[in-house]
Amino acid sequence: MSSHWPILVATRIVRLAFLLAAVAVVAFTLAKLSPVDPVNAYLGPAIAKVGPEQRELIARKWGLDQPATVQFGKWFHNVLSGDLGTSRTFNAPVADVLAKRVQASLPLMGMAWLLSGILGFTLGVVAGARPDTWTDRIIRTYAYVLASTPTFWLAIVLLVVFSVGLSLTPVCCAAPIGVLPEDVTLLERLHHLILPLIALTVLGVAQITLHTRAKMVEIMQSDFALYARAQGASLADVAVRHGARNAALPAITVLFASLGELFGGSILTEQVFAYPGLGQAAVQAGISGDVPLLLAVALCLTLVVSVGNTIADILYRVVDPRIGAVHDLEARP
């Protein structure tokens, strides 16, 4: 049985490669379809001072005069060899921009991801252990309302209450304005991180909670949970030993599968708090027609999200004893 899962991983990786290639084609086509002229977008207000010859020169330098398929071939070849191109908005290699932005976004998204997982799972277990009690109703209502709440509006409300109303937290950015990056203390960073983190976490909690709750309700009505009750187990005993244990795997799967939503949320949250992360870079790239950066962000996010989904899928198969693949553990004393 244990020989199954290298094959599984291999097929998933092939699939992933297919997916990335497909996304590269689609993303490139979409970017080429855009009526936003990259040269105009680059020049901005300076457009009036530039003659048609100079514009043509720029276009030729960027390879825009060649057919789209040639452009794609060149770009794709460069990406495969590790060169993502140059970002015109930031006037720097795309790889450098990405690295810097990921550095800012990673703590935000990573912590929001973990926290929403832990909080959401706990709330879901508590609510699902005793369905239709007041605790359950409150948790369920909370999750339903949150699931219907636009992330950016939640961020705005937090900003209005904590930053403007109570002056507890900063209004924007990842660090105090006017302070050199190397002088920013960890505490200042955390201080600037806290509101975006709350906004992003609270949003992620809803989905995990609702999913875990549904799973818990199902498990608590399952034959083995009822049998545990018949053995004299308390509700808490059943909820933890059978409920939480069995609900954990689906919850982790949902958590990995929710990476896409998390990125979507972070784009909006970063926009509200002017937090210089990956999401904000994506928005700027889109608005200023910075195609290489936009494509790189799209590929980068697709990679992370798909890897998340793949991990969830593999995890599910490897951990559940019924699907096999753990029989070699059998010999354990």
């Binding site: 970017a31 896409g260 939503e261 784009i267 994506a282 936009l294 697709t302 798909s306």
Partner: peptide, 24 residues
């Protein structure tokens, strides 16, 4: 099935931005 998996695996908002960008 591949299309469904692919579309579900993509970060929605990025795809939305790309499509909206493509259509101006």
């Amino acid at each position: 099935s591949f299309l469904v998996d692919a579309a579900m695996g993509l970060p929605h908002l990025v795809l939305l931005i790309l499509i909206s960008f493509a259509l101006g």
